[in-house]
């Protein structure tokens, strides 16, 4: 029986290949910045579907988020601001439609019931729309409708601050 002699270079290559192979198979290796963007459009779809089936809450893409300035600065005592809100955690009755860009330090902090999600990167928007076109290639009417809807949903200006 012939035994193959291992060359150091071959050993390094083998180790590297195995490690690389492991990276490819690891979920996290596919979870980074660019993949994050490509997954966002799918996430929005999944969330919309999930909400549509069992929940009346809405899903919406964010265009921009601006930190809310507190009038008079923040010097409130711990936990004093939103006791009423805190007591109703998990209560879906907090669907507040009003918003505030400036608030007093001691005002309750309202949280929208809308599930807000970040949109995909600009270069992924066209890809997502194209994928849908391909999926519906045998249905020209549907194709046109989805494309329009998709473009409406995904025309955004990504926050750059």
């Amino acid at each position: 029986m012939k035994t193959q002699i291992s060359h150091p270079l071959k050993s390094i290559t083998l180790a590297g290949s195995l490690a690389l192979a492991s990276l490819i198979s690891l979920p996290a290796s596919a979870e980074g910045g660019s993949v994050h963007h490509s997954g966002q459009a799918s996430k929005h779809t999944v969330l919309s579907t999930a909400h549509g089936v069992g929940n009346s809450a809405k899903v919406a893409s964010a265009v921009v988020a601006v930190p809310i300035i507190v009038s008079g600065g923040l010097s409130l005592a711990a936990g004093s601001a939103a006791t009423a809100v805190g007591e109703s955690i998990g209560d879906s009755a907090q669907n507040i439609s009003t918003h505030h860009k400036h608030t007093e330090a001691n005002q309750p902090l309202y949280i929208t019931e809308i599930t807000v999600t970040a949109d995909p990167a600009p270069n992924q928007i066209g890809k997502e729309a194209n994928d849908r076109i391909d999926t519906n290639n045998n249905s020209p009417k549907l194709k046109s409708k989805i494309t329009t809807t998709e473009l409406k949903q995904t025309t955004v200006i990504k926050e750059q601050n």
Binding site: A60, A62, V63, A65, I96, T112, I114, V156
Partner: peptide, 16 residues
């Protein structure tokens, strides 16, 4: 805690 502008133009409050 932020004022979040949605794609629809609606502004809501939540955390970014």
């Amino acid at each position: 805690y932020s004022a979040i502008t949605l794609g629809s133009g609606e502004v809501v409050n939540g955390y970014a």
